[in-house]
Simulated scan of single mutants.
Amino acid sequence: MNVSDVRPLIGITTYYQHATWGVWNGEAAILPGNYLHAVVDAGGIPVLLPPRGTGTKVLDTLDGLLVIGGSDVDPSRYGENAHPTTEFDTERDSHDFALLGAAEALGLPILCVCRGAQVLNVAHGGSLLQHLPDVLPEGERYRCAPGVFSDTRITIDPESLAHSILGDSCTVSSYHHQGLDRIGKGLLVTARSADGLPQILESTDDSWLIATQYHPEEKRLEDRRLFAAFVAACGSRTEAVSDTKPTPSEEITE
């Protein structure tokens, strides 16, 4: 069998916005390239999921789900009014929440990044800090300037899945103005930065679920461990599902 036939299929959420390139000027479904490269480098086959029109049935064909970063979550989902700095897309929220919930129900390995971690927390009944400078004026500088990432040192719980992948601590790339506040049901904080802000969430059960407030795809060339572990988990699930399917000689025909 060709190697490409057995690589796991990784669904990746995207976002919809105005874009311009060449003579084109219009709306587009967009995925920052580093997410794509990180999945491919780790041995996965990326499947881009447009933020309009994608149904949860597509997850039946996939081996894992990557929920990427982007705009804020609608604060009405966690019972708050919007802060002046909060910007959200209700259609994208509906799309990402539906896909994430369905992926959890199917037991797919899931990796959530930045906004993805916030979607996960809110989906489990948690809440967000809508603007970190209001509550952590002396904390880490998570967003230095538009499009500029900052380095953040995180410390990881030794009993966690993240620790088995990343060790005691590591330096990560941050770009966000919101953070995790009340942690949702069934989730556990397994890494924090020096200012106490949660940086990694995991499931309290044995699901392969990691959500990072930071952006692991930005350090993909120097630290491939998290994406490698995620794609490996998706590959293990692929093999397990394949093992339960009958081979042609085992199929019963009438």
Rank of each mutant, 00 (worst) to 15 (best):
N2R: 02
V3M: 12
V6C: 14
P8D: 04
L9K: 07
L9V: 03
T13V: 03
T14W: 00
Y16P: 05
Q17W: 09
H18K: 12
T20Q: 15
W21V: 12
W24L: 13
N25Y: 08
E27A: 13
E27F: 07
E27H: 11
A28K: 04
I30W: 03
L31E: 06
P32S: 08
P32G: 13
N34W: 11
V39Y: 09
D41W: 03
A42S: 12
A42D: 02
G43N: 08
P50N: 05
P51L: 12
G53M: 10
T54F: 05
T54Q: 06
T54W: 02
G55F: 11
G55T: 12
K57V: 10
L62D: 01
D63V: 04
G64P: 08
G69Q: 01
G69A: 07
G69N: 01
G70I: 01
D72Y: 06
D74Q: 08
S76I: 02
Y78C: 08
G79V: 03
H83R: 06
H83S: 08
H83C: 11
P84Q: 04
P84T: 01
E87Q: 14
D89R: 01
T90F: 03
R92Q: 12
D93K: 00
S94E: 15
S94F: 09
D96G: 05
G101Y: 06
G101Q: 06
A103H: 01
A103D: 04
L106A: 14
G107L: 02
C112N: 03
C114M: 06
R115L: 13
A117W: 03
A117C: 11
V119D: 07
N121K: 02
N121M: 10
V122I: 00
V122C: 11
V122L: 08
V122M: 09
A123P: 05
H124E: 00
G125I: 01
L128E: 02
L132H: 03
D134F: 10
G139D: 05
R141A: 15
R141F: 11
R141M: 14
Y142V: 05
P146A: 08
P146F: 06
G147Y: 02
F149S: 07
S150E: 09
D151V: 07
T152V: 15
T152H: 11
I154C: 06
I154E: 00
T155P: 08
A162R: 00
S169N: 10
T171M: 07
V172G: 04
S174Q: 07
H176L: 06
H176A: 02
G184M: 10
K185P: 00
G186H: 07
V189P: 11
R192F: 11
S193E: 08
P198E: 06
P198N: 02
P198Y: 09
P198T: 01
I200Y: 06
L201A: 06
E202M: 07
D205T: 01
D205Q: 05
S207M: 09
I210G: 06
T212P: 08
Q213G: 05
H215Y: 10
P216C: 13
E217Q: 08
L221I: 03
D223R: 09
R224F: 03
R224I: 00
L226Q: 01
A228I: 00
A228F: 05
V231H: 06
V231S: 10
G235M: 10
T238A: 15
T238H: 15
D243Y: 11
T244Q: 12
K245N: 13
K245A: 14
K245I: 10
P246K: 07
P248D: 05
S249M: 13
E251R: 15
